[in-house]
Design a protein around this nucleic acid. Structure first.
Lengths: 130, 130
DNA sequence: ACAATCTATTCAACTCTTGGAATAAGGTTA
DNA sequence: TAACCTTATTCCAAGAGTTGAATAGATTGT
């Protein structure tokens, strides 16, 4: 997996496009069968221009698609897997929130597992097998 | 789901932390049972300071944990679900790459599903039921 | 203590992102 | 055509992210 793997860069671009609260909420609103821009500005309570700007980011990242319907525009998520990413993020955030609540009651300890693997010419404790 | 839902903001923070090619690769390298910083700098072929900077971002986002082992430091992903997010991103990126290849051969058409839902006072075609 | 090794932090320059305001563009109705 | 509605785009200033260089910190060995 080279440093400039196109898969890695694209995955990073996707994450970057998702990494804004408003855009995350937009994607969440599009869940199911999409939504009109009007609806998004109304539900998210943000200025129309701002919503449109965020939609542009999502559009340019290929995460959503705009469908013109006369005067209004309907947006849909371009691939259901986009919502899989969103769901994974929300699930992790939810778990973290729950963990932080437990933290408010007690302390914790941690450990670690075993070792293995190797690779090019790396002298780290694992690779130092030359 | 309010505009400042802590779950949404945290999910966005997580996505933001992941949204850099180097950090995505770092998380990918930590897959399994973690890795030494040395190993990361060696495998990713980036200056030590840069790797350390990215590790700091991941650390402050709570995605990884540093474990000091004498002179070296071992990093682990703090929650397996972090890799679930990474996997979802990579899977989507992979699918997109495949789709782009097909695009190089033919054109495509699209349609849309039905309608429904409602909400506050939104006048979009779906909510216009007052 | 000193030198060597590995990792973290700070600094400065640069780039990218964000968001409000204003405006343009596309489409409908009178 | 004019007025109106919905959405997109441009401009710009403030803020955030990224990186190399240099430096600091921590640990081990001599």
């Amino acid at each position: 997996m080279p440093a400039n793997d196109p898969l890695i860069s694209d995955a990073a671009r996707i994450a970057r496009a998702i990494s804004h609260p408003v855009r995350l909420q937009i994607l969440n609103e599009l869940r199911g069968d999409g939504a009109y821009v009007m609806h998004l500005t109304s539900v998210l309570g943000r200025p129309q221009a701002n919503i449109s700007q965020h939609l542009m980011v999502l559009r340019e990242a290929g995460l959503v698609r705009a469908i013109r319907e006369g005067m209004t525009v309907f947006y849909v998520v371009s691939d259901p897997d986009v919502l899989t990413v969103v769901d994974a993020l929300l699930a992790l955030a939810k778990k973290r929130a729950a963990q932080r609540e437990l933290m408010a009651e007690a302390g914790m300890e941690e450990g670690r597992g075993g070792r293995r693997r190797h690779r090019g010419k790396c002298r780290c404790p694992r690779c130092r097998q030359q």
